[in-house]
């Protein structure tokens, strides 16, 4: 078991995956953000995606 979450102590360092606007709003508040240019894993190939999740990628 890892260390318990200490998220509430802040400050937040956020990885945003999905809507860009969420990252923009966090940045405008001065929150440190890495915005991921996300696309479906394995270009949406379900067989590859299943294999990848079993192989722990």
């Amino acid at each position: 078991m890892s260390e318990k979450s200490n998220l509430l102590q802040g400050p937040l360092k956020v990885v945003n995956i999905g809507l860009d606007s969420f990252a923009d709003e966090l940045k405008s508040q001065g929150v440190e953000v890495q915005n991921v240019d996300w696309s479906p894993p394995a270009s949406g190939d379900p067989r590859m995606a299943a294999l990848l999740s079993k192989l722990g990628s």
């Binding site: 998220l7 360092k13 956020v14 990885v15 945003n16 890495q34 991921v36």
Partner: peptide, 20 residues
């Protein structure tokens, strides 16, 4: 970054993933 993995690598100490 294209993946959570590399985003975390680029920002050590990342503590929250906001997923949409």
């Amino acid at each position: 970054a294209r993946t959570l993995r590399s985003a975390v690598a680029a920002m050590p100490g990342a503590n929250l993933a906001l997923i949409s």
